[in-house]
Design a protein around this nucleic acid. Structure first.
Lengths: 342, 342
DNA sequence: CTGAAAGCGCTAACAC
DNA sequence: GTGTTAGCGCTTTCAG
């Protein structure tokens, strides 16, 4: 490569600190990695020198030598989502408190080769992994075999072997539907999410349960499959609106598809919420930005990220814990997109 | 720590491949790092074995040994921005093509200690850094001293020593203002960005230039300082609307502050665009989501990210290149938030 | 063209 | 308590 000059600026290593303080570099290492049995005075001297020299550890070397790299990986489908951004924010904040760094991986990179990808992540320099991905179980087996610490966010592992944090999808959907019912709506359309995903199923179940509770018959015609994305929300809403007896309210399984639906509604010259009510799920930041502001079921996305980090850090400390599953509460956020039936 | 079981699942290393193929592990290394003078047959054998064994390189070890880690760092203020998301998307996509991974750093972590933070990044396992941060020049000195490859996105370095990619801020602001003028507006309010930032200044200049071109006097009252954030946009717009002679149109220096302004406008019972026109800057995804859809000046955010990656990768190849500065074109996106003056 | 050997910076036994 | 000594997986001279 380029050998004309030193490839890298000479780093400050523990050797330098050792030389400065006159102790061996393993002692320095002990101090820096928080080992307890070091004379207090020595510790101070080392710490002081480290600060003075501007020492920063080399994560790669650390991880190579068998220590922690203080890096965790976050695997997400992509960044174009609002939803992900919120979770990531929570993760980053909590990670900062623990002085961990964040490696970001996106799945759309390796269509079909995800498991190789995940293996490469696990085998690299991250100490653990947070997955916010529509589930493909191959990942998990690989990870479990390696006994690699990971936690799933808003995703469930049928095997029950995984640590997961999610939210009360069923409950949230129930409340959303109930809210519409109490507003007098009887024909309530549902735009589902990707049905392979547990949360999508749970939301559908919650919807059905609410109808049942209020003795409203389930009309399959009113349920149209979506995929959590805006364009599909648009199409799904179009189908709903073209029905012979269109719904007076639509429950979209996430905000993004609600936005698509709003677009479709508006295009038909209908007013929200005067002519038709709409309710979403997630409460991504855009939900309060659209007009009218979207009534939705809030998932505590950032908190979910934070909790995931805490679980993961625990897990890194002690990989042999039994798998935990924590479910955070959703909350109905009433804004301007729903109205009692005239 | 936990020694009850092997800390990590045994990785496949180049040693394994060497054993499999019967060559020395240095030859394997040569093949895997793309060294040219290897017999073709040997290369094939090695490659095949690597694939069969599911080999993945350990980035930490690589970087330690003086090679590339194939990781670049992205330093951003935070993820809560829309703007950043777009840039990051472009970066990630381009990185994927080059098989690089992405380390994400947020600045809000280390208030005041940014330069230590940056040093720790540069000294770690990233091969280069992309900065999308309101500029603090300390960073740069540190990076330059280390001869560490970095590129600035949408930020300019007064010293001219940095590689940067940005957009035609002046031009974009000029066009936005001109557009409003041609719509018949004469009193055009401006909500600025953080004025320490070059792009904010350029947009202000573009605005002034357009007024001058069309012989419209510059009224300082119509310029209120913002900071690129929504709440401030709200406040700034409020000030503008409370003027004795309020503007008939507002140019917000970015979309986020435009959203804030829209809120303020609506709260006063004014209609957009019937009573007042508003135009933004950036064209973040939310811009087409708000109602009415925001007319704005598009920055090719994702493309800026992509270009930044290409520059950075070049720079990593050859760190001694003279600094380049590429400026991408902005484009006026006409949607629904502006109207000819009645 | 390929092998042998010397580290990169750090952690973790193992001695003392 | 602290120093000594092996490597971790990889790249890169230096010899053939």
């Amino acid at each position: 490569m380029n050998k004309s000059m030193p490839r890298k600026y000479r780093q400050v290593t523990i050797m330098d600190i050792a030389r400065e303080t006159g102790v061996s570099y393993s002692t320095v290492s002990r101090v820096l990695s928080g080992f307890e049995f070091v004379k207090d005075e020595t510790r101070q001297r080392v710490l002081e020198a480290a600060r003075r020299l501007g020492y920063v550890a080399h994560a790669g070397a650390r991880s190579l030598a068998g220590g922690k790299a203080n890096i965790i990986g976050l695997l997400v489908p992509g960044l174009d989502n609002g939803y992900i951004g919120e979770v990531a924010r929570g993760i980053d904040e909590e990670l900062a408190r623990a002085s961990y760094d964040l490696m970001l991986y996106t799945t759309h990179r390796q269509r079909g080769k995800e498991s190789v990808y995940v293996r490469s992540i696990a085998n690299g320099l991250t100490d653990g992994l947070i997955l916010v991905v529509p589930l493909v179980t191959d990942y998990l087996r690989e990870l479990q075999v390696q006994r690699f610490p990971y936690v799933l966010v808003d995703q469930s592992d049928p095997s029950g072997q995984s640590n997961v944090v999610d939210a009360t999808n069923w409950q949230g959907a129930y409340e959303a539907t109930e809210y519409l019912i109490k507003l007098g709506h009887r024909r309530i359309g549902l735009i589902t999410g990707m049905m392979q995903i547990a949360s999508a199923q749970e939301r559908l179940e919650g919807y059905r349960a609410a109808l049942t509770s209020y003795n409203i018959g389930f009309d399959p015609e009113l349920v149209v499959q979506g995929d959590f994305w805006e364009p599909t929300g648009y199409q799904a809403a179009s189908i709903l609106l073209d029905l012979e007896h269109p719904p007076t309210a639509i429950f979209a399984s996430n905000d993004l598809s609600a936005f698509g639906a709003m677009e479709a509604i508006r295009e038909r010259g209908l007013r929200i919420p005067a002519d038709i009510s709409i309710i979403g799920f997630d409460d991504i930041p855009q939900a309060s930005l659209v007009y009218p502001k979207l009534t939705t079921v809030r998932q505590p996305l950032d908190e979910m990220g934070r909790v995931a980090v805490r679980m993961l850090l625990d897990l890194i400390e002690d990989p042999d814990q039994p798998a935990r599953h924590v479910t955070l509460a959703t909350q109905l956020i009433v804004r301007d997109s729903c109205q009692a039936i005239g």
